[in-house]
């Protein structure tokens, strides 16, 4: 393997002295944005924590109505997509343009598969009368408390799905533009940071929502 990069060298903006300094600034900027995203999801996680603390039985009963058969495979799909994303970043760093496009494509497809499974799952939830304010029927005690669980479920997974959709858009733009002027690996690296973050959000949503009541 030659060391000659298949992509042109990075352009250094005038406020930076070196490529390395610019690279660090870009990465720290993305991490700062992700810290605000932690706060964004954190507020809802706090709602969940309080409500589960206040209504433990209702939350376990409500969680029992979700299907691990949807949530589990979807977790695996997202973990696979993080793996292909990491390989895309690696390909970008090594200047392998074809591998970069292939891994970005694989990540996009896995993201779409995740959204498709989520769509089927939402449909199942609707058929089973589990959508608050739209069609919610609950037999047994704690109907309003269970409704709070499902409100949190739809809000958290809905916002997460929006993030996945935005991520797919970003990766598609990278894959499209990368074919013509793959400038450097920083755009791929920081888009990867966003994609991995969205994966981490799901890593916590999965046990909190799906696994709370299966024992």
């Amino acid at each position: 393997m030659t060391n000659r990069p298949a992509m042109p060298e990075t352009h250094v903006a005038h406020q930076f002295e070196t490529v390395e300094q610019q690279r660090e600034a870009d990465i720290i900027g993305m991490w700062t944005f992700l810290a605000t995203e932690v706060m964004f999801f954190g507020g809802l996680i706090l709602c969940y924590t309080f409500a589960r603390f206040a209504y433990p039985q209702a939350f376990e009963a409500a969680s029992h109505r979700l299907y691990v058969g949807y949530g589990g495979p979807n977790t695996a799909i997202l973990l696979c997509s993080s793996f292909t994303m990491a390989l895309a970043v690696r390909a970008a760093k090594m200047g392998q343009r074809n591998a970069l496009t292939a891994f970005l494509g694989a990540t996009i497809l896995l993201g779409l598969a995740f959204l498709a499974v989520k769509g089927f799952e939402y449909h199942t939830d609707y058929v089973e009368h589990l959508v608050p304010r739209v069609d919610f029927k609950w037999d047994g005690p704690g109907a309003r408390q269970a409704e709070i669980f499902f409100w949190l479920y739809f809000t958290l997974t809905g916002l997460h799905a929006v993030h996945v959709t935005i991520g797919i858009g970003i990766l598609a733009t990278l894959a499209w533009r990368g074919r013509f002027y793959a400038g450097n690996d920083i755009p791929v690296e920081i888009s990867g940071l966003y994609w991995h973050f969205v994966d981490i959000v799901w890593v916590f949503l999965f046990p909190l929502l799906y696994l709370a009541g299966h024992r």
Binding site: S82, F83, M85, A86, V89, E189, G192, L193, H196, F197, D199, I200, V203
Partner: peptide, 8 residues
Amino acid sequence: LIVLFFMH
């Protein structure tokens, strides 16, 4: 694992 290795 994700933060240390995938997010470098």
